[in-house]
């Protein structure tokens, strides 16, 4: 199942700071919903373990996350791939940072691809759940920025 993800987020921080944080595996690990561990396996390549939980639905997943096509401090591509008890998932997104009115605007756009169990029995709410997870990520990320600023 294809899922389109995209949006814009605004942060009160400078662009270098946001860039740094997006590229910080420790920050990512804290922000990715359900991320249990993130182990570096190569340059900008990490093995991740997830314990996903959205309301009643939950499961474990193992996979890879990679950052590429970097143009600091404005552009980066994130690729995620994993599989687990809920099925398989793949994501490919590009985010772009720019400064605007003293804020940093993060524009992100990408597609996800979900297969296996969840695609077969949960297609009705998959999109909403994905949206919710993305939202959770940014809530946490905003928190990180505030924490760093404080």
């Amino acid at each position: 199942m294809k899922l389109d993800i995209g949006g814009e987020e605004r942060f009160d921080a400078n662009i270098e700071r946001v860039w740094e944080m997006v590229n910080d595996p420790a920050v990512l690990q804290r922000c990715i919903p359900g991320c249990k561990s993130m182990t570096e396996t190569g340059s900008d390549q990490y093995k991740i373990e997830l314990n996903l939980k959205v309301a009643s639905v939950g499961g474990t997943m193992e996979g890879m996350i990679g950052l590429s096509d970097k143009t600091p401090p404005s552009r980066c591509r994130i690729q995620v791939e994993g599989s687990g008890t809920l099925g398989t998932g793949k994501g490919d997104a590009v985010f772009e940072l720019r400064e605007e009115n003293g804020q940093v605007v993060m524009k992100y756009e990408g597609t996800g691809d979900v297969g296996g169990l969840v695609a077969g029995v949960g297609q009705r709410i998959l999109k909403g759940v994905a949206k919710h997870l993305v939202g959770k990520f940014f809530t946490a990320f905003r928190g990180e920025i505030q924490k760093a600023a404080a």
């Binding site: 009643s56 008890t85 969840v118 029995v121 949960g122």
Partner: peptide
Amino acid sequence: QTLMPMLAMRLARP
């Protein structure tokens, strides 16, 4: 009635 199907499909695993 909602949770049991999710348990059976192992979508939920409390």
